[in-house]
Amino acid sequence: MYIETERIIIRNFKQKDAEGLLEYLSNPRVNCFAGDRLCSEEAAWAYMQYSPKDMLRYAVSLKKDDFIIGDVFALRENEDTYNVGWHFNKRFEGKGFACEAAAGLLDYLFREAGARRIYGFVEDDNIHSKRLCERLGMRREGCFKEFVTFVNNPDGSPKYEDTCVYAILEKEWNTIRQW
């Protein structure tokens, strides 16, 4: 896999990415990725080598120096439907890199992987990802109240998350795609 945009490259992971991956996954910013928490470069390397069946997972690096700033992923749920997501290093926030990378992933899925529908789950309090979905032209299809739990409250009880669904169809992507 190799996608080049104006400022980034979406590519397969390289062993040299372990340090950068550890930087942003040592403390995941949203609860749904608590299970992706990494504590060593060895764990980061193992994470890069392992992907569940039917999951595509790619590094996002800066074009100028090939430093990893995030990753994008897509889980193929059936022949033409993908669930997408992303992780990004907070140090590179607010510069449009996540939008550039997510748009590259969606474009690849629609044009090369046969996607008809792409959707993503976003925790209701994850404002950055909700805005990113909207910038990509994805529509909010609903919000499930207390849908799932990833972490516990201080008293040990499960903390249930309100989870929104954003989606876009290939025909919608083809109409709005401007990048």
Rank of each mutant, 00 (worst) to 15 (best):
Y2L: 08
I3E: 09
E4K: 15
E6T: 07
E6H: 05
R7I: 06
I8D: 02
I8F: 02
I9D: 00
I9Y: 10
I10R: 09
R11I: 00
N12K: 15
F13P: 02
F13T: 03
F13H: 10
Q15R: 13
K16S: 15
A18N: 00
E19R: 10
G20R: 07
L22D: 00
S26I: 04
N27R: 04
N27W: 01
V30F: 06
F33C: 14
C39F: 10
S40T: 11
E41S: 05
A43D: 14
A43K: 14
W45D: 09
W45G: 04
Y47M: 04
Q49I: 00
P52Y: 14
P52C: 12
K53S: 14
D54S: 15
D54T: 12
Y58C: 09
A59N: 07
V60P: 00
V60A: 02
K64C: 07
D65V: 04
D65Y: 00
D65K: 03
F67I: 12
F67D: 11
I69L: 06
G70L: 01
G70E: 05
D71L: 04
A74Y: 06
A74R: 09
R76V: 04
R76K: 15
E77F: 05
N78K: 11
E79L: 12
E79H: 11
N83Q: 10
V84L: 10
G85V: 12
W86P: 00
W86N: 13
F88P: 00
N89L: 00
K90G: 02
R91Q: 09
R91L: 04
K95I: 04
K95V: 04
F97H: 13
E100P: 08
A101P: 00
G104Q: 06
D107L: 03
Y108E: 03
R111W: 01
R111Q: 12
E112S: 13
A113C: 14
A115F: 02
R116C: 10
R117P: 01
R117L: 13
V122D: 05
D124S: 15
D125R: 10
H128W: 01
H128P: 11
S129N: 07
K130H: 10
K130A: 15
L132E: 02
C133T: 01
E134F: 07
L136S: 02
G137M: 06
G137W: 03
G137Y: 08
R140N: 13
G142A: 06
C143R: 13
F147K: 06
F150M: 09
N152W: 00
P154M: 10
D155S: 11
G156L: 06
Y160A: 08
D162F: 06
T163N: 04
Y166C: 07
Y166A: 05
I168Q: 11
I168E: 05
E170C: 12
W173E: 03
N174E: 14
T175V: 08
R177I: 10
R177E: 13
